[in-house]
Design a protein around this nucleic acid. Sequence first.
DNA 1: AGCACGCCGACT
DNA 2: GTCGGCGTGCTC
Length: 606
Amino acid sequence: MEFYDLAFPFKLGPLTYAAPEGLQLSPGALVLAELKKSVKRAVVLGKAGPVPGRVADLKEIKSAVPEGVVLGESLVRLLKWMSEYYLSPEGLVLKAMFGAGLFEKRKRKAARPKAAKPHQPLPVQEIEKSRLNEFLKPEGFGVHLLHAPSTAYERSFIRGAVSGQTGVIVLVPELSRIPIYEPFLREEFGERLCVLHGRLTGAQRADVYEKILSGGADIVLGTRLAVFAPFKRVSMLAVAEEESEHYKNEEYARYNARDVAIKRASVEGAKVLLTSICPGAESFANALRGKYRLLRPARKPIRVRLINSRKTPMKTPSISEGLHRGIMSALEKGAGAVIIANRLGHSVPVCEDCGHLEKCPSCGMAMVYHRPRRALRCAWCGHSKTAFEACPRCRGHNIKFLGSGLERFEDELKKLLPDTPVRTESAAREDGPSDARLVIGTKRAIPRKGRGEVLAAGVINPEGAFFHPDFRARERVFRELCYLADRLTEGGTLYIQTSEPALLKNLKTLDYESFIKAELAERKILGYPPFSKTGLIMVEGPIKKLELPALENVEILGPAMRLIKKGEKASVLMVKASSSKELKEAFPAILKGIKAEKITVDIDPV
DNA sequence: AGCACGCCGACT
DNA sequence: GTCGGCGTGCTC
């Protein structure tokens, strides 16, 4: 009698089953087996070790499923590695990989032909052959990091790298990037290309898997779950915008698809191309210490104007003359301008008579006035209350509005340029794209490239994000500036208007390498990643017990209240260790000391 | 006492 | 994911 360990796509570790006489199974095979009285699909992880308990109590595998071996040896290895690394049961990893349906084809209503999505053609850039060969030449496993001068270069490089290959996975951070990459891949690979992402229905997803398993498709473009595409052979994986936080799965197993891509490549003997106009600190550090090969094409310096709003003449309370001139000059040349302000709402109302300032009862943060709703809102936790007409303390009407949020900024800009059509973020959400050449909004409003020239891009007080309690805050600000600058047409200028120029000293030239080296030096001193490994423990509901062990080389910070999703708060503990082995080994002891309703573990949080 | 419903832990 | 166990609470 043979025994096998099976994984079911649920929060469940491997379970041991007996195989019926004459059924030979290899790892990765799909089978049917009874679980809790009902028959379910499961994946064979391998032959079982010593069977715990009585062999006679084990249930029998019902049958193998015709799809056969769906996972291949390397994907089974990847599954086991993820389970160990992310401290997540094998079943949950399996569910994260292929969904609870496990390749099952449900009957479905007549398939409607999907309409071809309109797309902008990819502006193709000349990529130096020699640079491309630096990536294409080396055989076998290896990670290459392209620090691209622009997103256009990044995309062209991926195009060149993928061309002529077989067994390729191209990962993009978001659904919205698929229409950018699909046209050129489709052009070259036709039906060999398939698109895979989380918004597909179960049946569509099963169709894609069928095409991949039958060998009909060998190029996949998709979001993070496409890293698990069940190819027999993968020769390369490309990860576009590799630093993106969207690669982090926030449910089931909390994996990072970029890191999983590298692991997958290492078990498959494939090569990896990480690309970004602003690589993440971890990846760049790996390149600096020779773990990754760094590809750095020449870049043109970006013209940046830093405007100190405390020292410069102001056109309105929140718009400096310099910024105003920049916008005007872009518009006069027939080009567009994009202005980003990340603070939502209008401003912070303060009573000039008694100095009263409304604070959030739970966070203590100043409440921000939101005019359309006539409400005061806490930017941190979302608590809101009706705005006051008179000062609640002294009844005075002498209210001063401090600071400039997006709403105020929109108002002032419209007043300054009464004849220019402006697309504001609030309007854009309702009306969709407009052809206004002046765009104002948070970073979400940054328009796609290719819709006319942009000669001025401005950002107001980007240092606001520094006050987030997060060691990555500065990196995020820098990245945002890089992506904003990327929208500029050649010859354009990036305007940074700030009231705290001292905080932006290292950022103002947008010199990535100097910035990231300084950042890495600081993280080294403070012991943050990549010089340590971190994991979060998120505790929802009241903590019933908290007894943290003292461990060598492991530091436990917190608990601190944190907003984990909109409106959902949790107590968060951060565990820091000097290596991922130490981190992994510390967790069981730490988790034993915590009792609460719901506890979630997140290794390598972003 | 008798049963409906909901939460929680276990599932080989 | 889903079954059964058990606790709460309402009803005959």
